[in-house]
Amino acid sequence: MTQRKRPAPAPEEGRAPRPVEICAALATGGLLTFMLFSNSTMAAYTTPLFSSLVAHGVGTVAAAVALVLIGALWRPGASSKGVRAPLWAYLGGVSGALTVMLTSMTANSPLALTGTLALGLVGQVVLALVFDRFGVMGLRRMPTRNDLMSLGLIVAGTLLIIFSRG
């Protein structure tokens, strides 16, 4: 029997996250601080639209270079995963580009950056809980009570920090 290669273990219900997964998530989130710093600097020199255009352009080139390098250095047969992605799975970038347009509108409204960040955080978490609960798009993880408490603490702490900046 040939074992089917899976990209990742199926999301189990309530499995305790491994420390490496938590650290990866925290480090990934930390990158956002640099991204915001970089992109908002560009937006201040030019416009939010141009800043996002540059970020996506540079990102496209950087990802292509990384893919070529990885492909040249290491051939794990990663393309033989066997599962084909539906066409819509390629459209994550549309949603990302729309986000930029919306937030640059709301950051210049009475909400300012603080309100934009706070409401965005809530919107993000609410939809994520709905996705997890109903297993949308092939990813499913039933939030446990512990997950919810952990999320609640993180959201509360984040809102405090956002509003501490005034």
Binding site: A8, P9, P11, P17, R18, E21, I22, A25, L26, A27, T28, G29, G30, L32, L121, Q124, V125, L127, A128, L129, F131, D132, L139, R140, R141, P143, D147, S150, L151, I154, V155, G157, T158
Partner: peptide
């Protein structure tokens, strides 16, 4: 590995 909600929470935490 962590689902959407926990991923979102931990990314924001970082």
């Amino acid at each position: 590995r962590l689902g959407a909600a926990l991923t979102s929470g931990l990314l924001v935490a970082g």
